[in-house]
Amino acid sequence: MLKFTEDHEWLKQDGDEITVGITAHASEQLGDVVFVELPEVGREVAAGEEIVVIESVKAASDIVAPVGGVITAVNEALPDNPGAVNEDAMGTWFFRIRPASVDLSGFMDEAAYQALIG
């Protein structure tokens, strides 16, 4: 089951890790993504910390860590193919994080996210 943030990220829990990407809505708002800078695996991050840089033909944007924890994996193919975000935003992940506690109850479900974006 996916959860969503007000910053237009999707979160998917897989055991004790959370996979993070951006929503189709965010991808559409950005336009053609031309550059992605990912965090280093093993980096410890705080919730709300800017950890991914995305640049598009329209704007530069950041992805913030939805929870604090340790980055356990990054999508190695993304820097070489940033357009994958536009092709399949909901199927393209950026990073995986192992939080101190896996509790996604404070995030929106799909219905709440759809209401947010109208």
Rank of each mutant, 00 (worst) to 15 (best):
M1I: 12
K3S: 02
F4T: 03
F4S: 09
F4V: 09
T5N: 01
T5R: 10
E6A: 08
E6D: 15
W10E: 04
W10Q: 09
Q13V: 10
Q13S: 08
Q13I: 03
Q13A: 14
D16N: 15
D16E: 15
E17C: 09
I18N: 08
G21S: 11
G21M: 06
I22P: 00
I22M: 08
T23N: 08
H25R: 08
S27V: 09
S27R: 01
S27Y: 07
E28T: 07
E28G: 14
E28K: 12
E28R: 09
Q29D: 07
L30F: 07
G31P: 14
D32H: 07
D32E: 11
V33H: 07
V33R: 08
V33N: 08
V34N: 08
V36W: 02
V36D: 11
L38V: 05
P39Y: 06
P39H: 01
P39M: 06
G42S: 11
G42W: 13
R43E: 10
V45G: 03
E49A: 13
E49I: 05
I51K: 02
V52F: 01
V53L: 15
V53H: 13
I54G: 06
E55Q: 04
E55H: 04
E55V: 11
K58M: 09
K58I: 04
A60W: 07
D62S: 15
D62P: 06
A65H: 00
A65C: 05
P66Y: 11
P66G: 04
P66R: 06
V67W: 01
G68A: 06
I71N: 00
I71P: 01
V74D: 09
V74S: 14
N75M: 03
N75E: 05
E76D: 13
L78Y: 02
L78V: 01
P79A: 02
D80C: 07
N81G: 01
D88C: 12
A89K: 00
M90C: 06
G91K: 08
G91E: 05
W93M: 04
R96F: 11
R98C: 09
R98V: 11
P99C: 00
P99V: 04
P99Y: 05
P99W: 06
S101M: 08
S105W: 05
G106I: 06
G106S: 07
F107K: 09
F107P: 06
E110Q: 14
A112H: 13
Y113V: 11
Q114H: 14
Q114P: 03
A115H: 01
A115E: 12
A115R: 04
A115N: 13
L116V: 03
G118P: 12
G118H: 14
G118C: 11
